[in-house]
């Protein structure tokens, strides 16, 4: 392992993270809900459940964020490194896995760990480990 100092962006990472934490805090303190994106999306796909309007509006805010950003500044760079087949497979696995695992990076990784949930800590360790392993296989075993 060697650190890619040229790509390392500690201050925007920390401040972006702080905004994410602030958003999750507002949502739980005011709306009483966990800001887990896969959970909000999944519950809107199913019938019933309360607070559908709040869940939909949170996701709408997420969708609209780049439009708001674009009013003030050029949007950050976006570079996809995966082709169509890979993206399809990845999307299916992310959709299926986050529903079985009851959460993703936001619900488990941020909100769950912040409320000291053992389930979320285990889930976060699991998806981090398989994320690291997958990139290792694809970049250094298969691709290398």
């Amino acid at each position: 392992m060697h650190i890619d100092w040229a790509s390392f962006t500690p201050w925007t990472a920390l401040s972006g993270g702080a905004l994410i934490g602030l958003s999750a805090s507002l949502f739980v303190v005011l709306n009483g809900r966990v800001a887990g994106i896969s959970g909000l999306l999944g519950s809107l796909l199913q019938r019933g459940g309360d607070g559908r309007d709040e869940k939909a509006l949170f996701l709408l805010g997420l969708l609209a964020a780049p439009l708001l950003w674009g009013l003030f500044d050029t949007l950050p760079e976006v570079e996809f490194q995966t082709g169509g087949i890979g993206l399809t497979l990845a999307g299916l696995l992310v959709g299926l896995g986050t529903r079985y695992g009851s959460g993703c990076t936001s619900g488990h990784g941020v909100c769950g760990i912040a409320r000291l949930s053992p389930r979320s800590l285990v889930a976060t360790l699991a998806f981090m480990a398989s994320g690291f392993a997958t990139v290792f296989v694809l970049r250094h075993l298969w691709g290398g």
């Binding site: 990845a90 986050t98 695992g101 990076t105 699991a126 480990a129 994320g131």
Partner: peptide
């Protein structure tokens, strides 16, 4: 589920 999600994320 979390392992599957991580594979897709990776």
């Amino acid at each position: 589920g979390s392992l599957l999600f991580g594979i897709g994320w990776g």
